[in-house]
Design a protein around this nucleic acid. Structure first.
Length: 571
RNA sequence: GCCUCCAUAGCUCAGUUGGAUAGAGCAACUGCCUUCUAAGCAGUCGGUCGUGCGUUCGAAUCGCGCUGGAGGUACCA
């Protein structure tokens, strides 16, 4: 399928003024609808041709042979504007949707593997509200990359190793926790979370507890059987709750490979670093110096010999490269850790691994909540001001449920739908803006059905489905009379649908789900306008309009899916 | 101190591989429901794109300086 851009470029090139690639590069989509569908600014060549841009555009307009589907060209102020014939655009777009269905706008397989490391919570802690960011950005990116032809490996790099476990073990034993199998099986994350908070409380007055915790971790690393037993019980309890929340959110992983998995792979990494003469002693610990990149040293091993975050990430990177032969590896982790990733990637570079440049940190901003004084603040796990994700989801569901009871009390599966709308609302609120922006979370604006929200977008989908359901038949493309889909509302909607592929590609190139979130809003707005202005059922144009409704529903459903929102059909 | 990120309407943000008169939503105000979910649509009001200089035919967008905010910066992750 040749795109409009390509055929315009070919037609312009034929006049001998521009090269085809130049046109493709310069061609823009004007903001003003009166300026047509595509616009070619002729300023760049003015100097070379020694002619005013205005003249160039005018000459081009008379010389160009209109490609198929372009109804007219118009030179204005040095721009050459192209107008697509409405019925031609309708035919072209809707035929493609008919052929590709949900995959319309997707790229074909490129035989490349991308690894997406996301969510990666710590074992022993409950998922906090801020974990939503990595989880939902990563989830959406996995879907977007897949739609772009990549093979995707979703990895949950669980924080299941480190001094934190020393703390848990110390507290558990101190509080006389049972060592019986059965009791260990019954452990919940909630109880583990409590151990953490009492640890930080008690250690304030008894600082030696910190040393005890460190020692306990060392003992765990050495393989003490009791400690190992406790550790795996803690892990099991946490995973149980994690899986419950992930499945509720519609998130899944291909691999759960925690940090502990790399425990026995670390000596080899240390050997390799030594062999390559990168490991040096500094202030009692082993580091890799990175001054040649203007970076502080990367800490590899503590003075007591135990490992650090960076060490495990190095081991994980080497393992992933070997195991998956990825062409890209993404780490969806908050902005605060950018120095860490920069260091790890540069250590790989110093180890002479060319693929260090295929490693990408995909940073994002934090979730802020407004204080009573109106200041935006970050919730802190330590001070207990951070909300638990499950509580936030539950609260969102309750609020939506109240709304449903008011508006549509007859709805079946109210509870389930309320949960799905609630989670989608939280997700959309997280994804609608660029990753790097902090999310200013506000209940009212996140859960509102008005404006740039999940419920608004879902509602558009629901209304389309509702029309389809009431029609009780499926419109066929053969029955579409293309001339009836040329009024402003239908035309604007079709134009929006035509941009799906470009938006998916852009979202993928920039690792920005927000591109698709904004696009979902555009579809919803155009769809609402269309069904408001052009009555479908019972109208003379019913079959054609119903077909457009069906096509829009398919596009919107897939875009919602790529964002990780639930494309519900009734609400 | 050094490094990174952010600054666009009263509020929350799009727009950033340079293109025409800078766009939405919220809030406020005004219309539109016997008609496919008014959970909607249409309209009014609202701007020194933080600031100065530079590059360019053309800058919210690129470069440099400054201001303000957030984060990171050796034994947490």
């Amino acid at each position: 399928m040749i795109s409009f851009e390509q055929s315009i470029a070919a037609a312009v090139a034929k006049t001998g003024t521009f090269l085809e690639e130049e046109v493709l590069q310069l061609l823009t989509v004007p903001q003003e609808t009166t300026h047509g569908n595509f616009s070619l600014p002729c300023f760049a060549l003015a100097k070379k041709l020694r002619k005013a841009p205005k003249i160039i555009a005018e000459t081009l307009a008379t010389e160009i042979e209109l490609p198929q589907g372009i109804s007219k060209v118009e030179p204005i102020n040095g721009y050459l504007n192209f107008f697509i014939e409405r019925s031609f655009l309708a035919t072209s777009v809707l035929t493609q949707i008919e052929e590709k269905g949900l995959n319309y706008g997707h790229a074909s397989s490129n035989n490349k593997t991308v690894i997406i490391d996301f969510s990666s919570p710590n074992i022993g802690k409950e998922l906090a509200f801020h974990h939503l960011r990595s989880t939902m950005i990563g989830n959406s990116l996995s879907r977007i990359y897949k739609a772009n032809g990549y093979r995707v490996e979703r990895i949950n790099h669980l924080g299941d190793w480190g001094t934190a476990f020393g703390k848990l073990i110390v507290m558990y034993l101190r509080e006389g926790g049972s060592l019986e199998e059965e009791a260990l099986d019954q452990l919940t994350v909630k109880e583990l979370n409590l151990l953490y908070s009492s640890f930080s409380k008690i250690s304030k007055e008894n600082p030696e507890l910190e040393n005890e915790a460190r020692a306990a971790f060392t003992k765990l690393e050495e393989g003490d059987s009791l400690y190992r037993k406790l550790w795996s019980a803690f892990k099991k309890a946490t995973l149980k709750e994690l899986m419950r929340i992930y499945s509720m959110m519609g998130v899944s992983f291909d691999h759960y490979i925690g940090e502990s998995f790399f425990e026995d792979k670390i000596p080899a990494v240390l050997d390799e670093l030594r062999e390559k003469k990168l490991l040096v002693k500094s202030q009692e610990l082993d580091v890799v110096m990175l001054n040649d990149f203007d970076l502080p040293p990367c800490l590899i091993r503590k003075s007591d010999g135990s490992t650090l975050y960076a060490t495990r990430d190095l081991a994980a990177a080497l393992y992933r490269k070997k195991e998956f032969q990825f062409s890209k590896c993404l780490y969806v982790v908050d902005l605060g850790q950018s120095l860490h990733f920069k260091q790890v990637f540069h250590v790989l570079k110093k180890m002479d691994y060319e693929w260090y440049q295929d490693m990408y940190h995909i940073p994002f901003g934090v979730i802020l909540q407004q204080t009573e004084e109106g200041k935006w603040e970050k919730g802190k796990t330590r001070s207990g001001t951070a909300s638990l994700l499950r509580d936030v989801i539950e609260a969102a569901k309750e609020k939506i449920l109240t709304f449903i009871n008011e508006k549509n009390p007859e709805l079946e599966n109210k509870e389930e739908i309320a949960t799905q709308i609630g989670i989608s609302a939280l997700t959309f609120n997280d994804l609608k803006n660029r990753r790097l922006m902090d999310v200013k979370f506000d209940w009212d604006s996140a859960l509102s059905f008005d404006g740039a929200t999940g419920p608004y977008v879902q509602n558009a989908h629901v209304r389309l489905c509702s029309i389809m359901r009431k029609a009780a038949y499926t419109a066929k493309i053969e029955d579409v009379s293309w001339d009836t889909l040329t009024d402003d509302a239908a035309y604007e909607l079709i134009k929006v649908l035509s941009r799906k592929g470009n938006n998916i590609a852009k979202a993928c190139e920039t690792d920005e789900p927000s591109t698709l979130a904004q696009y979902a809003l555009e579809i919803a707005e155009a769809a609402h306008r269309f069904i408001h202005q052009d009555r479908v059922l019972g109208s003379a144009e019913e079959k054609s309009r119903l077909y457009l409704v069906q096509a829009t529903q398919i596009v919107l459903e897939n875009v919602l899916d790529l964002l990780g929102l639930f494309p519900i059909r009734q609400m």
